[in-house]
């Protein structure tokens, strides 16, 4: 029993265990939320609000209060804090600085490409790959094939310029 608790706390768990636990949690989110788990719609809402505050755009669609009461906000916050908790439980919490300055550039541009791509396609790996396919939606399959090709291209760039 003690050993089992040790593994739950310290990890790592086998990938297939992760897949089954994630499947159950993802279904529970669908039941409670009455719509599937997604990440970037909420990030987009915050970005539009932020841009509005900075004077880059007109009236944002949502007010701060609406954003703070949106379940998407707590889905994203929870993933960050849950992952932090997982490192604390294993006494592994610490700041992990950049290994190399060029990774700052690739993280920034990679992030921008991801955010842009997710919002013109209406989803990310969670909203479109996982939950698009889980919803038997054609868009999920199209996006998944494109992400695979993009990852191949990204791998080429990674090998050529970054590693």
């Amino acid at each position: 029993m003690r050993e089992k608790l040790q593994i739950i706390a310290k990890g790592p768990w086998a990938y297939w265990v992760g897949a089954i636990v994630l499947a159950i949690l993802n279904i529970l989110v669908l039941v409670v939320r009455q719509e599937p788990w997604g990440i970037t719609t909420n990030i987009e809402e915050w970005s539009v609000w932020l841009a509005g505050k900075l004077g880059l755009t007109g009236n944002p669609d949502l007010t701060l209060k609406e954003l703070l009461l949106s379940d998407g906000t707590y889905l994203n916050l929870g993933v960050i804090l849950g992952a932090f908790w997982a490192t604390v439980v294993a006494s592994q919490a610490r700041f992990r600085p950049l290994k190399n300055k060029k990774f700052a550039v690739s993280a920034l541009f990679g992030g921008i490409m991801m955010g842009f791509g997710a919002r013109i396609a209406y989803g990310c790996n969670i909203g479109l790959v996982l939950n698009g396919i889980a919803s038997s939606s054609l868009a999920g399959w199209i996006f998944t094939i494109a992400v695979f090709l993009g990852a191949w291209l990204g791998g080429k760039i990674l090998l050529r310029y970054l590693l």
Partner: peptide, 17 residues
């Protein structure tokens, strides 16, 4: 644009780690 978005997303996620 779903395909284009996926391509950008896939490339970007590898670069961003």
């Amino acid at each position: 644009h779903t395909f284009l978005g996926g391509l950008l997303f896939g490339t970007g996620m590898v670069l961003a780690g």
